[in-house]
Design a protein around this nucleic acid. Structure first.
Lengths: 192, 192
DNA sequence: ACTAAAAGAATGAACGTTCATTCTTTAAAT
DNA sequence: ATTTAAAGAATGAACGTTCATTCTTTTAGT
């Protein structure tokens, strides 16, 4: 739903405030009034940029997911060897999750909750195709186990969400060494 | 908070209705009025069994988590060899998550959301100690990688949550073969 | 065993508050 | 002068919770 082109700053500020509130209070305690107050605008102004609260949260999800996926394939090249290509994507994702911890926590909350429309969720998932392609290539080259992409994702990418949540709670500090161990575990779980 | 001893059925029915509503609608769209209606009682009746909505959801979380952890260590014995002991616990957990998919989805929603009090969350986490002990034993016996328990959990148990969510959306059917692959991936990621 | 009184459960209606959203007015930009 | 952006006030609906009251069960007195 396209509304305004002008003053994208305000729109971005609204998205940012929403992210912060949903992260800290949960969707059930992130009312429009608080979003407006935190942004420094009137509640009515939100409706110049978004159709509804649901529209706001859906757009936020899709945009954060897009920025995540864009980051994931930075410097990735399909001609790279399987393991090297996987390592680049994996580390891109890992770095995103620990540099942009608020965004990552938000995504994990969305992915485990019915708060986002199913259609928006599917839209957000499409951008990961190059990783799935890489895995398929790895399977035919007998480098990666011949198991479903869901399994491969569950054991390589998904664990990062847990580590990140622990990181946020200061339960597990993630240094370079820990990251290397994590990558090794991911790779060991799927390599033949 | 101890309230009534009598008529535990109604209390259980309230918990069950809450679980179902939160799962399908999210916490933000599971009002007391709907919980009451689904249970077939008056809204006021809820407050004979629980202090508040927050108390209701906290108690639900703690009890579901407890039943999950109880199931996890069924037939487990500390004298078992590392791999066998791990396999038993892992498969217990896997079976719980796929036999009690509603409960498991609920737990994953709670664990990724600020909807549960932090104290209740910590209470729920305590019961997993035997698994951590097993891992420690595995490390000293040089069977399991010398990495933190958070990493071990992230790569062996946490992935099941993803598989289960996919299962619920009918995206990934989990047969016995897939389960075996999943266990192998889990073990491969942490064994030396 | 029967009845009356007390206690415990449960209720629907109503409370004050807060919600998402809209209406009306003002300020700013063109 | 006209249009657009923003604001604040206002809206009905819905929220969590409590209220006064009524059923239902238990207790006690005969």
């Amino acid at each position: 739903m396209v509304k305004r082109e002008k003053n994208n700053e305000k729109r971005t500020a609204l998205l940012k405030a929403t992210l912060s509130l949903v992260n800290n209070n949960g969707f059930h305690d992130a009312p429009m009034s608080k979003i407006a107050k935190l942004t420094g605008v009137s509640p009515a102004t939100i409706y110049l940029y978004f159709d509804s609260k649901q529209d706001l949260i859906n757009q936020l999800y899709v945009e954060v997911k897009a920025s995540f996926c864009e980051c994931a394939f930075n410097e990735y090249d399909e001609s790279l060897p399987i393991k090297k290509g996987f390592e680049i994507i994996w580390k891109n994702i890992a770095h995103y999750k620990f540099k942009n911890i608020e965004e990552a926590v938000f995504l994990s909350q969305c992915d485990n909750t019915p708060m986002i429309d199913e259609t928006s969720k599917e839209e957000g998932l499409k951008h990961l195709q190059p990783l799935i392609d890489l895995w398929e290539r790895g399977k035919t080259e007998k480098i990666i186990k011949p198991i479903s992409s869901y399994l491969l994702y569950a054991y390589t990418i998904y664990p990062l969400a847990f580590l990140m949540n622990m990181q946020k709670k200061d339960k597990n500090q993630l240094d370079e060494n820990c990251l290397e161990n994590a990558f090794q575990a991911a790779w060991d779980s799927i390599r033949i």
